[in-house]
């Protein structure tokens, strides 16, 4: 079933987009990631112009993260205080990221930088999560209690000043690393056109030692606002948000997100981390393949910037 996209100015298959949205929504609800890191490459792979894929992807992620957040809100697995502090840092970071984005685009190397960032971060995050979670699964099979929160274990992060208590996360840490983390992720997210959940989730788990079940809800809560901000910025300055495309992806996405959240609830924390790690690794490898393997065609057409 063909449908014409008014902003992308091309005709696409409606069913493919609905299915794409549903698949990404499912994973999004399950892992607490917005799914931007999946939807953006998928759209580009489906020949949607990259600028439109990035902006519209962000718009779609709002819907699935609202849907997912509501599910977590009901379960009480959102730390609003932590989410708000992360968001404050995130807004600063993503504004800075948007400036760097425009700068790279003017030099014609944006695609390369974005691909390299994707491969590096997805590869590093996915690899670390896989190793850690597989070890945790092994340990729990061996009879030991699998827990990331070892009492009495403190790293340098816990010695910083301006401590704040995050009750829902059972956390008492300085706001500096929380704000910094939010800003760093916001910065990367703006350049890569994603909400940053796939970095946020492991960072909260491994750096701040937030319990896995709270991480997912909090991450979704935070992503909802970051992507709303990104959508408005992209729509205002680049006119690259395609409402028809976004709506198709959203409809598939919100349905998938509820089923995903349900499945995610049944899995243990370390299993969830292992699966997310594997998924992130798979996307990284797919993108690395394009970077390192000879392309089918060495020539590429693009429109000059600023015209």
């Amino acid at each position: 079933m063909g449908i014409y996209l008014p902003i992308a100015e091309m005709s696409v298959n409606m069913l493919v987009l609905l299915a794409m949205g549903a698949a990404v929504g499912f994973l999004s609800g399950m892992f607490g990631v917005g799914g931007g890191f999946l939807i953006t490459p998928l759209l580009i792979f489906y020949n949607i112009p990259p600028a439109i894929a990035v902006a519209t992807g962000a718009n779609q992620v709002i819907a699935s993260s609202v849907s997912g957040s509501l599910a977590h809100f009901k379960r009480g697995t959102i730390d609003f205080k932590l989410g708000t502090v992360l968001l404050a840092g995130g807004v600063v970071g993503s504004s800075l990221g948007a400036v760097v984005f425009a700068f790279l685009r003017a030099y014609g190397q944006l695609d390369l930088i974005v691909s390299l960032l994707y491969v590096f971060f997805l590869g590093a995050v996915g690899g670390m999560m896989l190793i850690e979670s597989v070890n945790a699964i092994r340990r729990s099979r061996g009879g030991a209690v699998a827990s990331l929160k070892k009492s009495g274990q403190h790293n340098w992060i816990h010695r910083l000043p301006l401590k704040m208590r995050f009750r829902a996360s059972k956390l008492f840490v300085s706001v500096i690393p929380v704000l910094g983390l939010g800003a760093a992720i916001g910065f990367l997210a703006a350049i890569m056109g994603v909400g940053g959940g796939f970095i946020m989730v492991p960072a909260l788990i491994y750096l701040l030692k937030v319990p896995t079940n709270v991480v997912i809800g909090t991450s979704l809560f935070q992503i909802m606002f970051v992507t709303a901000y990104t959508t408005i910025v992209q729509a205002t300055f680049n006119q690259t948000v395609d409402l028809v495309l976004a709506l198709l992806l959203m409809i598939g996405g919100v349905a998938g997100a509820q089923y995903g959240a349900k499945v995610g609830q049944k899995l243990k924390g370390e299993q969830l981390r292992a699966l997310l790690g594997a998924l992130v690794m798979a996307v990284a490898l797919r993108l690395a393949f394009d970077l390192f393997v000879a392309p089918g065609n060495v020539y590429l057409l693009s429109t000059p910037v600023g015209m």
Binding site: I62, V241, V254, Y259
Partner: peptide
């Protein structure tokens, strides 16, 4: 109306997310 369009896109997405939650809720 770029700005209004962007705000509309966000509101629409939130609405779809909320409706999706109501229609497809699984818990």
């Amino acid at each position: 109306y770029s700005l209004l369009y962007g705000i509309f896109a966000v509101v629409l997405a939130m609405l779809v997310g909320w409706l999706g939650r109501i229609i497809f809720r699984r818990d």
